[in-house]
Every structure is written in structure tokens, then in C-alpha cells.
Design a protein around this nucleic acid. Structure first.
Lengths: 221, 221
DNA sequence: CTCTTGGCGCACTAAATGGTTACTTTCCGA
DNA sequence: TCGGAAAGTAACCATTTAGTGCGCCAAGAG
């Protein structure tokens, strides 16, 4: 007896196959929600679409996340945690200051490029005056580490004589984000206003070079 | 004869007072729509709210602008025309290149600050992949003049020996916009992430100074 | 084998929303 | 002065949407 009829093909590993898997369902919902929120904003996203794309029942969304806004908040928190975690992995303190800074600028650009949902989620959250992020505790912790990272980097550069004194780490952080973020978030209107395809490979490469140059000129002694 | 009974108080000037005034109604609708779209995005804006804030009947919106999206397109076009017109008034070609550039950076920052709707409208339009701006012809005309303005400015600076050679006017334009735009559009999440009130007077002044410095270092010979 | 927990699905609702129909009121030129 | 055109209004409609009530059944515990 006790022969599991379902588990003949697919699924071998650690967890045995289950028709009901709360964690997996949650993850599918979050993934679908990230895409839907990113594409249409909080207001434009449709709960039914998220449920369908997640191959989950809409009821489950309310079961796990209480409301559409609760779901959005979780998606947003995850997005911030993800980018901060990726930044920490850069290990900038093992590199010389100039190389580390270049690496940060490059990373920021490429992260936005590969994770366009991040930008749209942040835009959406700002349209709502950060009401969801305000409630989040984890954000403060990861943000602080992030600001310190650049602060330390600047200090090391000043000590080494390669960076000038008096650059505010927060202003620098904002600027590094800005010159990539703006270009990408406004790529559609920008391509019309400037009459060139801002997303062409050449254009992207050129923008990265320009940004590296901008930041370097900004901090060097 | 022809004594207008209504026009005893208020209204002296050119146009006589009318209880029915298509132009005035259109203007009120556009004004209300700009605010509503800016506050809630295209998707989040409510046609009924626009009608009420404009003291107009909802039917009038469809009469003059065909649809919610038609209204949005007009609002957006006007917003672009307005900022480009303001830029042309700067008369940068009468100033020496360095002063002109500083003036442009300062203007851009202050315009965003005084007209936050512009930023939100552009964000909303990019969420919709610029589908409305694509249809607009007037945009191309005003944009071209704008790009040329900065191009000429750069050339004059190079000729005078104060700016370095080889700076792409488009990249510079984007950067000038970016360092102000990003700071302001993300002021809500930014104030949380960086744990300071980015909209405090001191913070705003500091950011403008930093931006002026950034651009100057970017272009100077 | 039973029982309880909770993952899951169907069918439903109350409210909101973009858009419209049908109508009245005002204006202006002939 | 009068008739048509345009401005303006109110009630209405078809859909869409976030959110639920309720019951089924899988699966781990004892």
C-alpha cells in the first residue's frame, strides 16, 4: 500500500512532490506580481491577471498577502532587499577605491538594465508617496549598510589621495543612481525627444562610458 | 442697447463675460486633468474627479477630448510645450558659455521643483511606453530646438576654450535632467533610504550646488 | 485509520468606472 | 426675432475590479 500514484515522473529531489505547496505557491504569486506591478504600476495591475499568471487561485493571494496593497508591499520589499544583497556581494572593500567606484557605477547600470522591474516598482511607490516602504523595517537596515559602503569607499579614496575631500556619500549615491535610472526609466519618451534609439546596444554602451566618466570627474582629486 | 447684464462686477478685459465659454471650460478641464493625472497617474486618475474639480460636466470631457487617453495626450503635450518654451526664454546664447550652462542646470532643477506635475506625467507616459507622445508631431519640433540649444552652447564653450572637446550634447542633456529629476521623483523613497528629508530647504540647496558642481566638472576643459 | 489543519477552487458581490443617451439652455447671425 | 448650432446637464449603462463565503480534500499527526 501507500504507493504514491502521482510521483512517477518529474520531481526527484529533496522535497517530495506535493500537489499542495504553500511556499511554492507564494513564490509563484510573488513572481507574477512583480511582473504585473512593474508593467502596469500598482493601480494598473490586475489581481486576476496575477493569479492567472501565477497559476494560482485569486483566493490564495488574499490568503497569503491580505490585499493587493499587501502583495505590492511584499514585492517592493523583496526588490529592495535583492538589490542591496547584490551590492553587498560586490565586495568593494577588497578593491582599490577607483576600481571599486567604477565597479559600483557599472553594477548599478547593469542591475537596472537586467532588472527593469526594480525601476518601475520604485516609480510606482513614489507615486504613492512611499506609503508602503514607510511601514517596512527591513528596508532601513539594508539601506544603512548600503550608504556606509559608499561612505567607506570615499574615505579610503581620500586617504589614498585619489579622491578629493568633501564629497557627500549620499549625494554621490544619488548621482550614481540618477544618471542610470533616469536614462532607463525614460527610455521611451527619451527616444522620441532625442530622436535616437536609447536602447540600441551602441547607445547603451556609450551611456555607460559617459556615466563612468561623469562619476570619475566628480570625485577625483 | 447691447448692455450685458451679467458683466457688472468682475471681468473688464478684452473678452466679455459669458456663462458658456468653450475655451474657458476646456482650460479648466485641462488644468484639473493635469493635477489629477500627475497625482494618480493615467490609470489611477478618475474622470469623474477631473470633471468635478474642473466644475464641468463629465460629458464635456468626452466632447472636447474624445476619451480619457485623448485628454491625457493633450495634457502631456502641453506639459512638454510649456517646459520647452520656458527653456527658450532663457536666452542662453546671450551669455558666456559657463554662465549659460549654470543657468540651464539651475533652471532645470527649479522648473522640476515648481512643476512637479511634469515629472509625474513623464513617468506615467513612460509606464505606457510613450504611446501618446509617439502620436504627437509638435513634440518633435520643440525637442529639436532644445537639443540644438545645448549643442550650440557646448560648441561655443569649446571655441572659447572653457569646455573640453567631445562631450555629446544629448548625453549632457540627459545628465542635467537626470541629476535633478531622479532626486525629485524619488524624494519619498529616497527620504527613507537615506534617512534624511530630501525636501528640506537645506537639502534642496545642497543638491542644487552639488549638481552645478557635477556638470561643471563634467564639461570643463 | 481517523482527525484536524490549512491549501485550494468556485461562484459570487458590491462598488467603482469609463463612456453614452437623450435632453435643456444659451448664444449669435441672418 | 427666430432658428440652428453649440454648450451644458443629469441619469443611466455595461463592464470591470478588488475582495469573500463556503465547502472540498490533501496530508501530516497521533
Amino acid at each position: 500500500m501507500h504507493v504514491d500514484v502521482i510521483s512517477d515522473v518529474e520531481e526527484a529531489p529533496t522535497k517530495r512532490s506535493r500537489t499542495r505547496d504553500a511556499e511554492a505557491t507564494k513564490a509563484r504569486i510573488l513572481d507574477a506580481a512583480k511582473k504585473e506591478f512593474a508593467r502596469n504600476g500598482l493601480g494598473g495591475a490586475r489581481v486576476d491577471v496575477i493569479a492567472e499568471k501565477a497559476s494560482a487561485n485569486k483566493r490564495m493571494i488574499y490568503h497569503y498577502f491580505e490585499s493587493k496593497e499587501g502583495l505590492f508591499q511584499t514585492v517592493l520589499e523583496n526588490a529592495y532587499v535583492d538589490i542591496r544583497a547584490a551590492e553587498q556581494k560586490l565586495n568593494l572593500d577588497h578593491l582599490d577605491p577607483a576600481t571599486a567606484l567604477e565597479r559600483l557605477v557599472r553594477f548599478t547600470w547593469e542591475y537596472y538594465l537586467k532588472n527593469p522591474e526594480f525601476i518601475t516598482l520604485v516609480n510606482s511607490e513614489n507615486l504613492h508617496r512611499a506609503k508602503h516602504l514607510k511601514k517596512s523595517e527591513v528596508i532601513k537596515v539594508v539601506s544603512r549598510k548600503f550608504v556606509n559602503m559608499v561612505g567607506d569607499l570615499l574615505e579610503r579614496g581620500v586617504a589614498a589621495g585619489v579622491f578629493r575631500r568633501g564629497v557627500d556619500p549620499v549625494q554621490l549615491n544619488i548621482t550614481i543612481a540618477a544618471i542610470g535610472y533616469y536614462y532607463l526609466t525614460n527610455r521611451f519618451t527619451g527616444s522620441i525627444v532625442f530622436e535616437r534609439d536609447l536602447m540600441a546596444k551602441d547607445a547603451l554602451d556609450e551611456r555607460l562610458r559617459f556615466n563612468l566618466d561623469t562619476v570619475l570627474r566628480l570625485v577625483r582629486a
